[in-house]
């Protein structure tokens, strides 16, 4: 390099082509990460429907949607955490504890709506507790939330004395609204849709959503770009906890009672739903709609098995097999897509 005195730089390459905009709804839909789970869900519904047309009835489908709501809401929160390479194993316990809180508060005479709000906030605080453990003790999130999974569940059992606690009466407007429907669509299902849409906007179009994905993509680069990593992690865990609270509150409104064992194993279902939906465990990417659809797919499998009169003891096995199938299919599709992209990409 030394000794080379040279002329001013001249651009030697034609200026890069103008940024391309992806246009067209069809292409946008095709490019979505959750396409696989959408097709799988619809396909499975149609297959079951081919054998048992009754399965395709609107009421039946709406019942599945209702059942999928709770795991679906938890999965939406989980997708945020997975996108930043974190994990919350305590969501099932948060769900149970907040449901209990909501029932007990309403039972003690508090306005059920207020009790619901308090429970959701409590869920957020439980999430904050998780985040603080992770941050101040330097624990990996999987370890911290494994501990709080047991703690929160234990708290639920202790506070409820191991028995069901009744919530607001069924004729209370609170229960009426939540267990009701709009044009046949259950309110719980509508809540799931609203949550998925709002969180999709949060993930795709707010600085918080970008930060979550940046941290998951490259934590060091995120830190060195000035992203407040700890704060973002705290926000994500509070979100996850609050969503657990929301799911708990919906359960009370729908069922009218809190069972201390409700929601055990939901943390794994939520992770499965998010992964089936197309959220990568490696971080950096997530799809909220996919996570919600993943929960619906799990719901379809559950009810489908009942139709095919699979013995109840084989239920879990079959669910596991479906998860495996869905995830491997998705992975195969993704690999093909990546290869296609790598082929067209140029190492410049």
């Amino acid at each position: 390099m030394s000794g080379a005195t040279v002329s001013a730089p001249t651009p030697t390459e034609p200026s890069p082509t103008a940024p391309t905009q992806r246009n067209g709804f069809g292409r946008a839909l095709l490019a979505q990460e959750y396409l696989g789970v959408l097709i799988a869900t619809l396909g499975l519904v149609l297959v079951i429907g081919a054998f048992y047309p009754r399965f395709l009835q609107f009421d039946q489908l709406m019942a599945i949607l209702n059942q999928a709501t709770y795991v679906g809401i938890l999965a939406c929160g989980m997708a945020f955490l997975l996108a930043m390479r974190e994990l919350d194993l305590s969501v099932g316990s948060v769900y149970a504890l907040t449901a209990l809180a909501c029932a007990m508060l309403a039972d003690s005479g508090m306005n059920p709506w207020l009790a619901a709000l308090v429970s959701i906030v409590a869920g957020g605080l439980l999430g904050l507790f998780n985040a603080l453990l992770i941050q101040y003790f330097g624990l990996p999130s999987i370890v911290a939330t494994l501990a709080t999974l047991a703690m929160f569940r234990g708290l639920t059992l202790a506070l409820s004395d191991g028995t069901q606690v009744l919530g607001p009466p069924v004729d209370d407007p609170f229960s009426q609204v939540i267990s009701g429907d709009v044009l046949g669509v259950p309110v719980t299902g509508i809540v799931l849709v609203v949550v998925a849409v709002v969180l999709t906007v949060v993930l795709r179009a707010t600085p918080f959503g970008y930060r979550v994905r940046s941290i998951g993509s490259n934590p060091d680069a995120a830190l060195f770009s000035g992203i407040p990593v700890n704060r973002v992690r705290m926000q994500a865990f509070v979100l996850s906890g609050a969503l657990g609270g929301l799911a708990g509150v919906l359960t009370i409104g729908y069922l009218g009672a809190a069972d201390p064992n409700t929601g055990s194993g939901y943390e794994l279902l939520a992770i499965a739903a998010a992964v089936i939906g197309g959220t990568s465990l490696a971080g950096g990417k997530a799809t909220i709609v996919g996570a919600a659809l993943g929960a619906v797919l799990l719901g379809v499998v559950g009810s489908g098995l009942a139709y095919f009169s699979v013995p109840i003891n084989w239920n879990q096995f079959a669910t596991g097999a479906v998860i495996l199938g869905a995830v491997s299919l998705d992975s195969a599709v993704r690999r093909r897509r990546r290869r296609a992209r790598a082929g067209s990409g140029v190492h410049l």
């Binding site: 600085p207 970008y210 930060r211 940046s214 995120a222 770009s225 000035g226 992203i227």
Partner: peptide, 9 residues
């Protein structure tokens, strides 16, 4: 966009 839009909002 990572610094200006995302980190610094």
């Amino acid at each position: 966009g990572q610094v200006s839009s995302v980190a610094m909002r």
